[in-house]
Simulated scan of single mutants.
Amino acid sequence: MTNTQPTANPESCVATTLHSGPADCLEGDCDELVTEDGEPTGVTWCSHVTTQEACGTHSEFTTDEWEYCTKAVPWPHLTATTPSTEES
């Protein structure tokens, strides 16, 4: 059986939501977000955008015009461990 244990102090980790997809969708220019008349459809994110929870503390980011995640560390920040085989 495999257990998971935090790799860092949970208080030092901060959850953040990452959005990824085509630039026009992230900028709100997707056909699913506005009608032909330019009116909002009421949809927040189109079907072309995916989201994932990541650890904002341990992930790596860079900025240009947008802030990009260059290395996403999953949230919660866990690692798999195997139980000890020692007998008591």
Rank of each mutant, 00 (worst) to 15 (best):
T62A: 13
P22E: 04
V43H: 00
T82G: 05
E67D: 08
V14W: 05
T57R: 07
A72P: 05
T81Q: 07
H19V: 06
A80R: 12
D29G: 08
T81C: 09
A72V: 13
T82A: 10
T57K: 04
C55T: 10
F61T: 15
E32D: 10
A72M: 11
C55M: 06
T41W: 13
C46W: 00
A72T: 10
T51F: 02
C30W: 01
T57I: 12
P6Y: 09
S47Q: 11
E39T: 11
T35N: 06
G21E: 03
C55A: 14
P83C: 11
E87A: 07
S88Q: 08
E86C: 07
D29V: 01
T70P: 04
H48F: 14
T82C: 11
D37C: 01
T2M: 15
V49Q: 02
V43S: 00
T35K: 00
W66M: 08
W45T: 01
T81Y: 07
K71T: 15
D24K: 09
L78E: 06
C25W: 00
H77Q: 07
Y68N: 13
L26M: 14
C13K: 03
E60Q: 14
T70K: 10
P10R: 02
G38A: 12
W75K: 08
L26R: 02
E11Q: 09
G21W: 01
G28I: 01
V49F: 08
V73P: 12
E65G: 04
T57P: 03
G21L: 04
E39F: 05
D37P: 02
E53W: 00
T41P: 00
M1I: 15
T70M: 15
Q5C: 14
V73Y: 10
D37I: 01
T81K: 03
K71P: 14
H48G: 13
S59G: 14
V14G: 08
T41R: 07
P22L: 06
Q5N: 08
E32L: 07
T44L: 03
H77W: 06
H48Y: 10
A80F: 09
G56I: 09
